[in-house]
């Protein structure tokens, strides 16, 4: 067989492969970077912990233990003792178990706050981007107003208005994200609207609805997903901040890191670890989501392709 035909065969082989979509490609690129892998590992561990923590927690996190209660005084909270790895919290509960189970509640708050924010934001941004004109103007002025209030202040106002419950925290934190997602999606969709391929679809006679849902929206969603990942990190921190300010969940028994951190603030001199461990947990998880989001952003950026 001549060199020519071997080379020819190689060439044809290389043509036969392919068929990878951009999303697949981006995903593959994302997980080439060690930063992304670190982010993914942290987030993965967190999610796994959130799921299995009720089953692996050594003690019941929602019940006081007499052994701990016995030594509990306003000026002394028991430290580690046999059976209780990190000792007691201020109410005589097993601190370690609460810390583990806290992952679940924290994830719950973070995920729902983000999801609600994304959902409302996408509806506003999507409408503004798809219709343009006065719909756009009205909706964008609305988000401008929301954006003009400092985010935490916005959450505090909402939290103060509603009765203190876990859902109050979720909604308050979600509202912080709404204008961000709305603007992001609207901007991306406006860019899409004047893009060549949308123009091409219009010229082709594709229905307006189809263009919005099949071309504009899917091509605009990338940055929203990235932002959502990043927002998960801030949502967890914001929820913690609300709890810290006493505007959080009124159910003090609930094991949630932000709440635990908030309730521990008066006990810093008595047992600093009560604040320290939830704080570290929040920071690490937030870091994980941030790393993941940032590397996704980087790989979605067309400038960084290949």
């Amino acid at each position: 067989m001549s060199i020519l035909s071997t080379r020819k065969a190689e060439k044809i082989d290389s043509l036969a492969e392919g068929g990878t979509s951009l999303a697949m490609d981006a995903l593959r690129r994302t997980f080439r970077s060690p930063v992304a892998i670190l982010g993914l590992v942290i987030v993965g561990l967190f999610v796994i912990l959130a799921i299995i923590s009720p089953f692996i927690a050594p003690k019941d996190p929602y019940r006081p233990y007499p052994e701990l209660k016995a030594e509990l005084t306003p000026s002394n909270i028991p430290g580690p003792m046999p059976g209780f790895l990190l000792g007691s919290d201020q109410n005589g509960y097993d601190f370690f178990s609460r810390l583990l189970v806290g992952a679940q509640q924290t994830l719950f708050v973070g995920v729902f706050a983000t999801l609600i924010g994304v959902a409302i934001g996408m509806i506003i941004g999507g409408l503004a981007g798809a219709f343009g004109g006065w719909v756009d103007s009205v909706l964008m002025r609305l988000t401008d107003i929301m954006l003009s209030v400092p985010s935490l202040l916005l959450a505090i106002s909402i939290a103060a208005l509603l009765p203190g419950s876990q859902w109050t925290v979720i909604i308050a934190v979600a509202m912080i994200g709404v204008p961000v997602f709305a603007r992001l999606l609207r901007g991306a969709m406006i860019a899409q609207r004047s893009s060549d391929h949308v123009l091409a679809a219009t010229a082709l006679g594709v229905k307006r609805k189809t263009i919005v849902f099949r071309h504009m929206l899917p091509n605009s969603i990338g940055p929203v997903i990235v932002q959502a990942t990043l927002t998960l990190a801030t949502a967890i921190i914001d929820a913690a901040a609300l709890s810290f300010l006493g505007l959080g969940d009124s159910d003090w028994r609930r094991a949630e890191w932000g709440l635990m951190l908030g309730n521990a603030q008066e006990l810093l001199s008595v047992k600093p670890s009560l604040a320290f461990f939830p704080a570290i947990a929040i920071i690490v998880v937030a870091l994980g989501f941030t790393l993941l989001g940032e590397s996704m952003r980087e790989s979605l950026d067309p400038k960084n392709r290949r």
Partner: peptide, 17 residues
Amino acid sequence: MQMIFQDPLSSLDPRQS
């Protein structure tokens, strides 16, 4: 009445086969 565009990449939706 159809149209052919200048930039063949940007005129094709990157997400479509």
